[in-house]
Design a binder for these strands. Structure first.
Lengths: 133, 133
DNA sequence: GGCTTAAAAGAAAATTATTTTCTTTTAAAA
DNA sequence: TTTTAAAAGAAAATAATTTTCTTTTAAGCC
């Protein structure tokens, strides 16, 4: 049983070939847009429907397997849910990377200042990557 | 001359009544969606077009007067550009607040780890506000 | 391994969000 | 005031996402 199949089972989702493919594409790319998922899926499943992508992405997000990351001035990407990390986007080439930066301090301070109980944090930075400078 | 008019002049945008209204609505609400801008605008300008809202919002964002904030699992909101701050969204009532938390440390660390030159940071937290607990 | 069935896929249409085009109106500079 | 480039508004076009409905299939059961 593949890793994707296992992930699906764990989240009580039927392991269809389309879903397995979606998960492995997300794993492979790290982050991927709906549009790119669809394009790549078409190569292997020429009759796949965009609705299938949307429905599956929504279900997987619902069940906590993946997450949507909204990117400033760009399309959303989807990623597998794993250890906390932040995102950095290159203004020049559009590349998105994860960085394992600790955000505990900020969250603690925000809780103190706001009185909120914080459940999740989204940090996205934009700038220029080393290759583009 | 109103404050909104002044802001528009500073950004070399013609001070039309619709634009002045958009800016004062953003100021008044702090953060506001396109949909709410349109609804409220209709009360004062019954023949306003959604295209006018979109075109103006895009121009104002382009010229650095306002900024779009993409919110996890919700519609984007727009805000005037001012001192750096982060956003906190209540899962329960949907309210969005600014908090003046310092993010310099995180940015410095991310720059070190990634090699990027960082230009802007977006931090959004989700949780439960004091009123909703 | 062949049934059964609830869930998923696919196709098409519907809905929602955003942008473009084109004509009329208007802010602002002369 | 007059002039004019830019903006507003209306309508259509495009893009993004969801819904509906029929057919297909994964997976539990014998």
């Amino acid at each position: 049983m593949t890793e994707s199949t296992l992930l699906l089972k764990e989240h009580h989702l039927k392991a269809t070939p389309q879903r397995i493919k979606i998960i492995s594409m997300i794993e492979e790319h790290g982050h991927i847009t709906i549009e790119d998922l669809y394009k790549e899926m078409l190569e292997q499943f020429p009759s796949v429907s965009l609705a299938t992508i949307y429905k599956n992405i929504n279900q997987m997000a619902q069940s906590g397997l993946i997450r949507e990351i909204k990117i400033p001035k760009a399309k959303s990407v989807f990623e597998l849910i794993k250890e906390p990390h932040l995102h950095i986007v290159c203004d020049s080439c559009g590349k998105i990377e994860d960085i394992p930066v600790e955000t505990e301090n900020i969250i603690k301070e925000a809780e103190k200042l706001s009185g909120y109980k914080i459940n999740e944090s989204f940090v996205t930075l934009r700038g220029t990557c080393p290759e583009c400078r």
